[in-house]
């Protein structure tokens, strides 16, 4: 009985002490930033309800290297409907000016950029 208890305790210890995987520190920083901004006053919040606001929102999100989830959040979209531009932008080592360019040439900021246009415009950025 004692042996069984010791064995169980040892298994518990192995499970508890096995090294924990974590996120990259940049990902943790992004999550912390999003959580810190969650209830910020309106003046500090990313605009979510107007066209120009959306453009700025995505620009800010990418500038801050924020994750896909938060870009969807600023766009007010679900993950699957945020469009390829958001997904590519935040998962690629893309620079702010490129996103700025994409959105300044877009007639409607919210309209997802056509993936084919992305590929032809920024072939080196295609995942």
């Amino acid at each position: 009985m004692t042996t069984e208890k010791n064995d169980r305790t040892n298994i518990e210890q192995v499970l508890m002490n096995a090294p924990h995987r974590s996120f990259e520190s940049s990902a943790l920083d992004r999550i912390d930033a999003a959580i810190d901004a969650a209830d910020a006053p309106a003046s500090r919040r990313i605009e979510r309800h107007h066209g120009p606001g959306r453009r700025i929102a995505l620009w800010q999100a990418v500038a801050a290297s924020i994750t896909v989830g938060s870009v969807c959040w600023v766009l007010g979209s679900r993950h699957s409907s945020a469009g390829p531009d958001a997904a590519i932008a935040v998962r690629s080592p893309i620079r702010v000016e490129i996103v700025q360019d994409v959105f300044s040439t877009s007639t409607r900021a919210r309209r997802p950029m056509d993936i084919r246009r992305w590929n032809s415009t920024y072939p080196e950025r295609t995942p």
Binding site: R21, I31, A38, W73
Partner: peptide, 16 residues
């Protein structure tokens, strides 16, 4: 980790 990051961020932003 991609989904895990997104989920944790979304959950806590929503809770706050």
């Amino acid at each position: 980790s991609h989904d895990a990051e997104d989920i944790l961020q979304a959950v806590f932003v929503r809770l706050i």
